Each structure stands twice: as C-alpha cells, then as structure tokens.
Computed example of a mutant assay.
Amino acid sequence: MGASEWDYCVPYQEDLNAALQQLRREVFEAGDYYWVNGGDWRPEEEREPRPQSLEELWEDEVVQEAGTHSILDVFRVVGPDDTPDHHTVEPVTAEEAHALLGTDKLTRAHVADFDVFPRSRWIGRCAVLHDDQGHPQEIRFWGHSGD
C-alpha cells in the first residue's frame, strides 16, 4: 500500500502531548483511520470488527506492521532534550522556524511551506500556529506513516 500523509489541526493548548492524546482518542472514536483487518479487499467473512480501544488496536501484529495511516501511528510528543524516534512527534522549535521560514511565530499562512521542515516516516511533526497578534491559536500535527 505504501505510506500515507496525514495532517490535523486542533485548538491550542500549552501541553502538546495532551493535545496529541485528545486528538488520537477523537480519531480512534470516529473510526477515521485505516483498519487493515476490516478492509474491503478481504472477503466479507474474513473482515474483523474494529477494535474497542487503542490498546486493542495496537495489540494486533498486522497493525503494528502496517499502521493506521493516521495520527494513531504516533504515540507521544518528544521533549526538547529527547531524540525523535519511531512513533513520536517532534515539535518545530522557534529556532528551526526562524532558520527555515524567517519567523519564530508560525501562522496558518506558513502551513503551505511546512515541507521545509525535515521529517521521517513514522515520526510526526507539530507546530504551534499563532494569530496576527502573535498569540497561540492552534496546533498542527502532520506526518506520514503506514506500509
């Protein structure tokens, strides 16, 4: 199948990891992800119902390999002293934003240029977006995952 790109925007909150966890719950509850074991490529009698929890979802070995092609494929936001790894989200720093886009206060207008931020498969990115007065308004999460 190959990897899929994903992109989400949520209201700003100071705790980026809490925002990620809330978003993951919402996406899971809405069923807005690829469920490999229920795909219409399988005969009807072999399709499995969607899992009842995120834990149940990730217990499945096929999901561990193929992913969900969504925000569910990342589990936590890394801190400033952490090294991003498989299933994590790396925040864009003010220094990185300034070096690549000329400002440390990103806005929705900058989103079209987010391809300048380095990224790797199975590692998401996030950035705080500001209003015209420089106040944080939203958090954008993006990445690509899945096989």
Rank of each mutant, 00 (worst) to 15 (best):
F117K: 07
S53M: 03
H144S: 13
L106G: 04
E5Y: 13
V63E: 11
T93I: 05
D7W: 12
V89M: 06
P80D: 15
L20T: 07
V77L: 13
D15K: 09
R25F: 01
D132Q: 15
E95M: 06
W35V: 05
I139N: 07
A3F: 04
Q133T: 15
I71P: 02
E5R: 11
L57T: 03
L129H: 03
E26Y: 01
G143H: 14
V128E: 05
H86V: 11
A97Y: 00
G124M: 05
L72T: 01
F117P: 12
N37I: 03
P84C: 12
S145N: 11
F117Y: 09
L101T: 13
L23K: 03
D131T: 14
D113M: 07
L16N: 05
D132E: 15
E48A: 10
D85T: 15
L106E: 06
A18E: 15
G134H: 06
A99P: 00
R47P: 06
E95W: 00
A127P: 08
H135Q: 15
H110S: 07
A94M: 02
D131Q: 09
S145A: 14
V74G: 10
V77C: 13
Q13L: 13
E59P: 00
D73C: 07
E44R: 14
E55H: 07
D131I: 06
Q133I: 01
T103K: 13
W122G: 09
W41S: 14
H69G: 06
T83S: 13
A99F: 01
R50A: 12
D131P: 11
L100C: 10
V36Q: 08
A3K: 14
D32E: 03
A109Q: 13
K105Q: 15
N37T: 07
T107N: 02
L16P: 09
V63I: 14
Y34M: 04
G31E: 04
L72D: 01
E46S: 09
E138V: 05
H110V: 04
G134Y: 06
E45P: 00
G134R: 08
Y33P: 04
L72K: 05
Q133M: 01
M1L: 04
P51Q: 00
E14K: 12
A94R: 10
P136Y: 04
A97D: 08
R24T: 02
Q22L: 12
A18V: 10
G38Q: 11
R47C: 03
Q21R: 13
P43Q: 12
A99R: 15
K105D: 02
E90I: 01
E90M: 13
Q52Y: 00
Q13E: 15
D132K: 14
V89D: 10
G2F: 03
V63W: 02
H86E: 13
L23R: 06
D40K: 05
L100V: 12
L20H: 05
V128T: 15
E59N: 12
K105G: 00
R24I: 06
D40G: 12
W58K: 10
A112W: 00
D40L: 08
A19D: 04
R125H: 04
A30Y: 00
E96S: 15
V27L: 01
A97I: 11
P11C: 04
E48G: 00
P80G: 11
I71Q: 09
Y8M: 06
A112Y: 03
C9M: 14
P43I: 08
